[in-house]
Design a protein around this nucleic acid. Sequence first.
DNA 1: CTGAAAGCGCTTACAG
DNA 2: CTGAAAGCGCTTACAG
Lengths: 329, 329
Amino acid sequence: MNKTISDIAQLAGVAKSTVSRFLNGGSVSEDTRQKIERIIKQYNYVPNTFAQSLKAKKTSIIGTVVPRLDSFATSQTLIGIDEELRTNQYQMLIANTSQDMHREIDAIYDFARQKVSGIILLAAEVTEAHLKAVEEIGIPVLLVGQQHERLHSLVHNDDQAGYDMGKYVVEKGHRQIVYIGVTERDQAVGIHRRQGFQRAIAEYGGSGCDVTYYETSFKMSEAIVTAEAILRDNKPSIIVGATDNIALGVMKTAFSNKIRIPHELSVAGFGGYDITEMIHPALTTVKFHYLQAGKLAASHMIRQVTGEPVEKQTILDVELIPRESVDNV
Amino acid sequence: MNKTISDIAQLAGVAKSTVSRFLNGGSVSEDTRQKIERIIKQYNYVPNTFAQSLKAKKTSIIGTVVPRLDSFATSQTLIGIDEELRTNQYQMLIANTSQDMHREIDAIYDFARQKVSGIILLAAEVTEAHLKAVEEIGIPVLLVGQQHERLHSLVHNDDQAGYDMGKYVVEKGHRQIVYIGVTERDQAVGIHRRQGFQRAIAEYGGSGCDVTYYETSFKMSEAIVTAEAILRDNKPSIIVGATDNIALGVMKTAFSNKIRIPHELSVAGFGGYDITEMIHPALTTVKFHYLQAGKLAASHMIRQVTGEPVEKQTILDVELIPRESVDNV
DNA sequence: CTGAAAGCGCTTACAG
DNA sequence: CTGAAAGCGCTTACAG
């Protein structure tokens, strides 16, 4: 059945160390090169990965830890990572943690056991346990979506995103504003995004601007509950959700309560999910470049793995997309 | 740094074959069991996967081939597979082919090289090349979402889905019907789903029922183009899309053309994507149980791998969900 | 129940 | 440039 390096060596009339050298780009004479190449083609030989890894003690696998599989952001980022790794002969291994932090830590150690060459971490939150794990395993790690001074990271410009949105909202004439955020444990979304928003409001809003902040989870269902409560005791002209999902939850709530968007209530979000331009009214949002983030993450990871210099932190641009869900007041 | 089985053996004062036997559930005396266990705990020993696989020539990895990562159906199915595999100490490896059939075939061979124990194939289309690959690798394969007499498979009841929808549409009084399908190369969606629909129309529709069939791709953007064309030269009371994405494209087109849903045009789809109940009007659809399909696929796969008997074909129930997008006429 | 030995398919110094 | 040999960390008959 499957040929081994010994078979190939024998068939080509050389030693297996020579075949191995050929395989790994070492120098061999033109003559032997041809012999070996021919046999390899002929028998369609491919080296056994396990044997390689056992000796080399490393692999060309990059592990990616994701908090969930069913989100636009995750899918797009993964696709980007996968494409870039593939073109560089690396393989992607995915560990889905279903938002369970213990599994996140476990996944890091598991990847280390499997001798992945590097780990890309899409975490919502970076705890001491994360840092400890990263330190212990001694494998390059790249954080995506969050930043931390002790780790390499690649982030979307959340502060800018919040700022652009805040500025836009004020310029559209909104003064009764509700911002639904998320937990501060998620620094990128919970803190930076909101702070950028606040900063813009402070700069452009003037004194008559009234902003109320609420907190909800990343789930649409909870966003609906939160939105229900808000609309019961508040009369904002706009609700800004910290994610498109939250904004979608707000829209759903408005529909249920026969509140017309954007005439009676404007809504905006963050993310730039595909679906946001399919719905009616189309959602105003700040688009993050997830696909590009994934590709960049992969190429940075490869540089880390191969020991090339690589920037400690990369910040990706964002883009405000005005659509129908925000009205002029 | 990392201990090997020899270290453990030495530390415990036994031979490494004994440790190995202990690890693999062979019989050891109570006494040695305790000694070994203690050392393993103490040093947090975990066997090297590569060495294991090199000898055993197989792994506890199940490869999953998916046509795309950014779809509700795929994500949900993957989550189901992953959860079930995890609880059974198997690992999931994902190969995303971005709808490129060559990569699909390559992925099968790649998985074989990596000695995965089984392959779960989420393919839209089964060609001779697929069958050849499956045969050549000699590894258990389970097809999900499509059926084929030569392969184990797990499918959603597409015929029933189409039938339920057809019946529902007729019962709601629709007689001017447009059905937007997809290529017949995708047998499940392109043929079975449509045929079920046709069958119901034939049974319940009577003579005055006019159904026109169109074909589009799985992309929303193309669905929009198709829908534009349809609405230009046709005046149906309802458009049924073969997938929720197509239905979403139809809705978008209706919105753009100021056609009110469902008063002027009803719309329905298939899939039961989460988003379909968040939008307004909420989309009438037939729900497939992707998560359950994933779990079942994983458990069937494990049975195939371990040589237990397993049904050649499994058909999963579907569920019609009437919502706001379909009007009574 | 236990251990010594061979071997899985590679790679890596080390000689020549 | 090339080859013989050792070794990566396991498992698996085979004796005892």
